[in-house]
Simulated scan of single mutants.
Amino acid sequence: MTMAQTHTDCNPLNRTDCPSMEALGGNVTFNFNDTIDNAIWMQQNAGEMGQDDEDGAYFTILKSGQSPMVQSKFYMFFGRVSIIMQAANGTGIISSAILQSEDLDEIDWEFKGGKSNFVYSNYYGKGDNTTNDRGEDHQLDFAPQNGYHNYTIDWQKNQTRWYVDDKQVRELKFADAMGGKRYPQTPMNIRLGIWSGGDKSGNNQGTVDWAGGETDFSKAPFTMNVRQVYAHDYTSAKEYSWEGMDGSGDWEKVKVVAGTSDTLKDAESPHGIKDRYNALSKTAKIAIACSVLGFVVLCALGALFYFIRQRRAGRREFLAHQAAEQRENAELLEYKQQTGITGKPGYNRI
């Protein structure tokens, strides 16, 4: 269903002025335990989102009406997406990882918080929801809410496959989707988020029933976590254009603009000190290591020189002090001899 994440800003089947879409045009791994790059991902909707070093990005529902999500600014024209994630618990709570186009082609992974040991797959062509025979439940030997697993969609021109931890659980042939007319086939972006299908204030009873029942928000928070996303665009391009598209939404009418996308350039450029260091050549890393080692050696030599110099200065001061004492003792002895003082206790006879 993914109702909270499904929308389009400009449907090219109904309009002729829809803007071009930036392509990914390559393959990138996004680690969500780092700060989400706002140049690549857009955060949307009410709710709480953030990052954790161990659990990655978190999407949290605190109350009714919330559905936090992120969606990529880049699009893929057929490709592979793998998401390492942990679904949220909670009756009626839906964790989702989907691909969707602006003309409402869609491929889904969905997780019902009140139904453990299952994951739900679905697809849509051109937003057509007149039938309810596209979705399938897949029984698992684990609970998606209790650990991190890899959920993959491999979307090709002639078929789409869904994998859980590299094990195929479903295949959709092009011809099986109304002879291809309802097969997802236009450029799609990635949308990750959580919503409450069991929220009666915003959903009809059919959706509430599908989600597993009404959500009890007194049991909030409900949290979904994503550690990593791997995205591979099977088309090499700078952008995808709707120029020349008609009402069919046929993939062959999508215009591919050659070049390297800004998204791919940004994704491949290092961010932060650690990434910048890792991006250096081996020679550069050796040069930096030698420079650091040289600096440490110089500091050590400087400290040793200072210690030796201070020690010598201390010895000179000791010898000078000793010489001064000897002079004072000699002067005292001479004085006693001149005055007749023997230095013994008592008095001298007269």
Score class of each variant (00 low, 15 high):
G179C: 04
T6I: 10
V292H: 08
L280T: 03
G56Y: 00
D103P: 06
G202K: 15
R182Q: 15
T131K: 12
H138A: 08
Q139N: 12
T152C: 08
Q337E: 15
A88M: 02
V226I: 15
R134H: 13
T6S: 15
Q51C: 10
L280A: 12
D55F: 13
F305V: 15
V164I: 14
A177R: 01
S236F: 11
P12F: 08
S218V: 04
G135K: 03
P184K: 10
R309P: 04
K157N: 07
V208P: 07
I286S: 13
A258M: 05
F307V: 11
D233R: 07
Y151F: 12
T215V: 02
G114W: 07
S236E: 14
K282Y: 00
Y335E: 15
N278S: 12
G127Q: 02
N329L: 13
K265R: 10
C10Y: 04
D266C: 04
N27M: 13
D37G: 01
K126T: 04
F74G: 11
G302V: 00
S82C: 02
S20H: 09
N204T: 03
C290V: 14
G113H: 07
N204Y: 05
R311G: 14
T8Q: 04
A267R: 06
M245D: 01
C18D: 00
T60L: 05
F32I: 05
S281H: 05
W195L: 05
H321F: 12
D52K: 09
S20P: 03
F142R: 08
L62K: 14
S281C: 11
S241E: 06
W210S: 06
V119D: 05
